[in-house]
């Protein structure tokens, strides 16, 4: 298929997944805020989230009415939910012929919701419903992707986008715990699990033994939970092999090699080793290696490395004087 189409499908899914994660982050944080009463603590609370998203350079404290609004509606931050939805639709629009009508209709309707004032009004008056709308959209979108689109090359790129974003978001949720100034409280741990919608799955496995060690172990290493790092990386690895037709365990390009090595990294370590090295450091490395995988997918299937940062440009012309 055309490289550009593959790229559009990949980014469409990344943006949808990102919008969903962000909706959970803001929803969970907002819930927790209700229990806080002093402003300093409140600021500190949001600060850790903003840092986990590397969004601090985009925030303009004069302009934003609140941190939530920044996350949801910011024009300047490319990853605000609104921008994610816009970007997802823009990517979809360029490859509409590859999508099912149902997917387009879903994406289009959430786009119009965010384009109008409805989104802000809904968030203001019924925030719960607002978050549910965004999250439901993403879930419906994923269901439709699985149920109404051919599971061919294009679908593999969609899946790659989804899992790379998901692994990234899960690592950020965990990382937010390490960025706190104090040891994470019970409330913080629950928040991290809820952001990954992992609370009940975690409880079933650990019977309520809530500790940083257990939470980290679950979100990093769970074999079966679809938002754990290991699960996502396994999917990335298998998608890449399906794409190239090379059997798992071998590699034919850099993306496969790096994905295989990231998978080995989560398969052949354990929580004790991770904590011994430092959770933040380990997560950082994992995030970087996944960014590399994304980069290499792009280089292998979409464009050559130089074209990545560059555009076709005209030579400057000299005025005749």
């Amino acid at each position: 298929m055309l490289s550009r189409v593959a790229d559009n499908l990949y980014w469409m899914n990344r943006y949808v997944e990102r919008a969903e994660s962000l909706a959970r982050v803001v929803e969970v944080n907002q819930d927790n805020l209700l229990e806080l009463d002093d402003n300093i603590e409140l600021d500190r609370f949001w600060l850790s989230s903003i840092h986990a998203f590397h969004a601090h350079e985009y925030i303009d404290h004069e302009k934003e009415s609140s941190a939530e609004c920044f996350f949801l509606f910011s024009d300047s931050w490319p990853s605000s939910i609104r921008n994610c939805i816009f970007s997802a639709r823009e990517n979809a629009r360029m490859v509409r012929d590859q999508l099912s009508e149902e997917i387009w209709v879903e994406l289009n309707s959430i786009y119009h919701f965010f384009r109008s004032k409805d989104a802000e009004v809904s968030f203001d008056q019924t925030p719960q419903q607002f978050f549910q709308k965004v999250i439901r959209f993403s879930l419906v979108f994923q269901g439709l992707s699985d149920a109404t689109v051919n599971h061919d090359e294009g679908w593999l790129f969609m899946s790659l986008g989804k899992y790379l974003e998901r692994a990234d978001q899960t690592s950020r949720a965990l990382d937010a715990l390490t960025l706190k100034e104090k040891k994470p409280s019970r409330k913080d741990l629950i928040a991290a699990l809820r952001i990954c919608s992992a609370l009940s799955a975690f409880r079933r496995q650990y019977r309520g033994e809530l500790s940083l060690r257990n939470v980290a172990e679950f979100l990093l290493f769970s074999q079966d939970f679809p938002r754990s790092m290991r699960f996502a990386i396994r999917r990335i690895d298998s998608n890449l092999h399906e794409l190239s037709g090379v059997p798992s365990g071998n590699f034919s390009n850099e993306a496969e090699r790096l994905a295989g090595s990231a998978l080995a990294a989560v398969n052949f370590t354990n929580i004790d080793a991770v904590l011994a090295r430092g959770l933040h450091l380990s997560l950082d490395e994992l995030q970087l290696s996944l960014m590399d995988v994304g980069q290499k997918i792009f280089e292998t299937y979409v464009m050559s490395p130089l074209e990545l940062q560059n555009v076709n440009d005209d030579q400057s012309m000299q005025a005749q004087q």
């Binding site: 555009v311 076709n312 440009d313 005209d314």
Partner: peptide, 12 residues
């Protein structure tokens, strides 16, 4: 008749 014209791949 521009003395030099062209295109290239690279940063602007």
């Amino acid at each position: 008749v521009a003395p030099v014209t062209g295109t290239y791949f690279g940063k602007p």
